[in-house]
Design a protein around this nucleic acid. Structure first.
Lengths: 105, 105
DNA sequence: TGATATAGGTTACTTTTTGTAAGTTATTAT
DNA sequence: ATAATAACTTACAAAAAGTAACCTATATCA
């Protein structure tokens, strides 16, 4: 049996952290602020903070501080992050075609 | 702000269950038995059993029992499951191009 | 007939991750 | 000095994952 590719395994580990996919799909639409993402997604501040730190550490997300009043912080995708667009798009396509919601049964 | 597509959200919920991606990538290579997957992946029997049940319930995986000695059970992908191939392939491509492992730093 | 072997799980229990809500920090306008 | 605001933290409870021992059904063997 072919052993698992360690890069693929690491990528999967990242994706299977809860909320990572949704945060990425938000950021693919453009720069976002902490509170915007918190409002758009069903995720709490604690985990959003945690996931953004993780994605920043992995070089997928950029954090830019604007010293205004009140302070404004914009999150955006790096090249590495933008390269994930096809992944998200394929999931969207699959979901559109195959996922059925409870209310449709 | 455009609200989240509920189908996409449900798909993401599934993907962000730990091990789901790796189980799918195993089954994309062909039929597999419980013990084969347990050996190939760094997942315990308890969770493999749980994830296979989940994927079967979602109509992504097929479970076929062969009444031999000893009993043989083959897991395979349904059409819905096979349709996930592009998703897995895009993740593989991204991982190949962008993921760096600790030992490469 | 009864002990043994085998695949495919399940159970009981511990550790880790998530969810929730309240509290903190830094800045600045009033 | 006080109040307001965005962006986090912290503390604690609940849910999910990790681990290892155990169970079950069937078939072969002694």
């Amino acid at each position: 049996m072919a052993p698992l590719c360690p890069k693929f395994e690491k990528a999967m580990q990242l994706f299977s952290k809860r909320w990572v996919g949704l945060v990425l799909s938000e950021l693919l639409k453009g720069e976002r602020r902490f509170s915007e993402m918190e409002a758009d997604l069903p995720i709490s501040g604690r985990l959003l903070s945690d996931r953004l730190k993780l994605l920043e550490k992995e070089g997928i997300v950029n954090r830019k501080v604007y010293s205004e009043f009140p302070v404004r912080i914009e999150y955006s995708l790096t090249e590495k992050g933008k390269a994930l667009e096809p992944v998200i798009r394929e999931i969207e396509d699959w979901a559109e075609k195959w996922v059925t919601l409870e209310c449709e049964k």
